[in-house]
Write a protein that binds this DNA or RNA. Sequence first.
DNA 1: TGATTATTTCGCCGTTATGCGAAATAGAAC
DNA 2: GTTCTATTTCGCATAACGGCGAAATAATCA
Lengths: 108, 108
Amino acid sequence: MASSNSITHLRRKRAETFKALGHPARLQIVDMLVRGEHCVCDLVDEVGLGWSTVSRHLSVLKAAGVVEDEKRGLQVFYRLALPCVGTFSACLDAARRGEKVEVRACCA
Amino acid sequence: MASSNSITHLRRKRAETFKALGHPARLQIVDMLVRGEHCVCDLVDEVGLGWSTVSRHLSVLKAAGVVEDEKRGLQVFYRLALPCVGTFSACLDAARRGEKVEVRACCA
DNA sequence: TGATTATTTCGCCGTTATGCGAAATAGAAC
DNA sequence: GTTCTATTTCGCATAACGGCGAAATAATCA
């Protein structure tokens, strides 16, 4: 059952990633990070929720492996750790509009 | 604000899709459907949860636009409505293993 | 028609998520 | 060392999720 368990484990991790992306505020954060790294202050401004709330959303994304953070001076900068999320998001949006698009996704 | 609202709307829909995928049982269902359509009975057997529970998971996936259903005789068959989900899943799994893969995803 | 089979809907209940403000932490500047 | 400033952690209330079994639907078969 080793291989079945590893499949299960991989799937659980994958589910965690999807779940982290499954919230409008977190997705808005991800959309910003697709365009480049940002400090928390920028994200708070844009998302329009309290600092503590945004901070926890970021910790969820980080725990799921979607983003990485780096402290520089007083600020903490976040960046996307899974670039393919941007590609897939574009995919989903295109599908919802009824468009048929072929994309090349680089899974890093 | 029309364009900003439509972006918001699109993102909310996208979040709903991600959220639907963010559960191990639903992801297991999706993994089965990647390999072809299945009736509910097959899915119940494989997932190992009650009929009512699996049924609700399926309705979540359907509401999010991830799967489609078709009734044939007594049985209801489900199939994947977003093939790119399979591609992206492979992407995420590869990334978790540390592999770097380039895939061509067709967003239907 | 009445029985059977496949699936969905409903109501319940314990667990988890999400928002907030207050307090804690950590680094920079004075 | 004290004081800012940026961010995280904590505790709490409310809302949403996820499981189950029982009951409702719907299509087939006798």
